[in-house]
Design a protein around this nucleic acid. Structure first.
Lengths: 106, 106
DNA sequence: GTCCAGTACTTAGTAATACTAGGTAAGGCC
DNA sequence: GGCCTTACCTAGTATTACTAAGTACTGGAC
């Protein structure tokens, strides 16, 4: 869907964290594919990587580089404790927002 | 709720439009109060006014200035046809996003 | 009649974040 | 070698909400 950019702000971090958690660990290229499969058609690789670097900088994930047999090395991300807490907090804020919007729409 | 700033991006425009539509017409100060009442505790006046000016610039609303007996003149906003369309589009995008997030959370 | 609280609107500057539009590399296949 | 897929990185830009002010009008307290 077109024009989702602004709506995605603040959401993508949580979404990426959740996708990582869903598969225990995940790497950027894989996350991008997963998101596109799930319907985020317009998500671009670059966007996902900037999110991942941000998550790393915020110390919400651990990173492990491992070689691949079909291309360059992959950077596998995993949530750490702070990441798990952050994700739970994200869903709480999200639910809150959803509830507010339901109230407004009536 | 704290730290909703980023989540609000892209949402506030739709929310403000909906609040205006809910009362046929509305002015900034009133919209701010309504939002705070509805739970957006941390919304600040300045934010609402910047949204309103943006909506005006995008030609989604009509504006009428009317005197008040309890303070300065009020600027009453109303959705025009483009605003109604935009709002419908906003809710469609929002629903889409909500559905995506449900899928991801599992 | 002066001061203040409540009402009402405006705006310059900042921070956060998604996108644009590239680029770099490694491996496999022809 | 040339090309495709996989895989990651990044400088610059646009959008948007917030910060932190300021202006101005009305009515009541004193």
């Amino acid at each position: 869907m077109k024009g989702m950019t602004e709506l995605l702000k603040g959401v993508l971090e949580g979404v990426v964290l959740q996708v990582i958690q869903n598969s225990e660990e995940a790497y950027g290229y894989q996350i991008t594919s997963t998101l596109i499969e799930l319907g985020f058609q317009d998500i671009v690789e670059g966007t996902v990587y900037t999110v991942l670097l941000r998550l790393e900088k915020k110390n919400l994930v651990t990173v492990e580089k491992r070689k691949s047999m079909v291309g360059p090395a992959r950077k596998f991300y995993r949530l750490n404790d702070a990441g798990v807490t952050y994700l739970a907090d994200f869903w709480q804020k999200w639910s809150f927002l959803v509830d507010q919007l339901i109230k407004i729409k009536r």
